[in-house]
Design a protein around this nucleic acid. Structure first.
Lengths: 92, 92
DNA sequence: ACTTTATGCAACTGTTTGGTTGCATAAAGA
DNA sequence: TCTTTATGCAACCAAACAGTTGCATAAAGT
């Protein structure tokens, strides 16, 4: 059933997660806290940091986001690799 | 929040629905019954016709499948138009 | 040392969703 | 006309999911 594709598509199915990808693709290496502030301030979301953290776990499982520890910060990096052949067979 | 994209991504989030798109993109103008047989026989799914019908409603709402009535048959047509710019901003 | 900042983990909750069962309908075949 | 075939509709159910609340931890600032 292609479990890898399934986690990717499921990760993309949520609008908050897609917004996270938008933010990270526009400005890489954000910390979780910076990202949270942006989602709430810039996009008017009302959501807790913990909820965003859970979304990031989902995105990491799908390989769409990487994170590395920098002191007390968790720095987030967008990775579009898994998206590259995602629609193959349907488009082109 | 872009409601249109949301319905498309949500439609793609289910593996059965993606399988339906695979079948329809490979062999267009299937009837619901033919599709059901293919999913069960060819792909070993254990699922009812009604469940598949509900998946088709989801796919139609997303604009990924069109259907027209032909006598007592419902003929299904795959439409990849909504997929064309779906990953724009993330890929390329 | 003490406090603040940034994050992680776990239990709980309301809603969504994929699937089933049962009944209705309408076209096609005998 | 009577039966079969292909489909539609609606109620119900269990599992998955997005989000919250509360507590723990560990680095950084004062």
């Amino acid at each position: 059933m292609n479990l890898e594709k399934d986690t990717i598509f499921k990760a993309l199915a949520d609008s908050t997660r897609r917004l996270i990808l938008d933010e990270l693709s526009e400005r890489n290496e954000l910390t979780l806290y910076e990202l949270t502030v942006r989602l709430i301030m810039k996009h008017g979301l009302s959501i807790s940091r913990q909820a965003i953290s859970k979304h990031l776990t989902t995105l990491e499982d799908a390989g769409l986001v990487m994170s590395k520890r920098k002191g007390k910060y968790r720095v987030l990096i967008f990775n579009n690799e898994p998206l590259k052949n995602l629609l193959k067979g349907w488009v082109e």
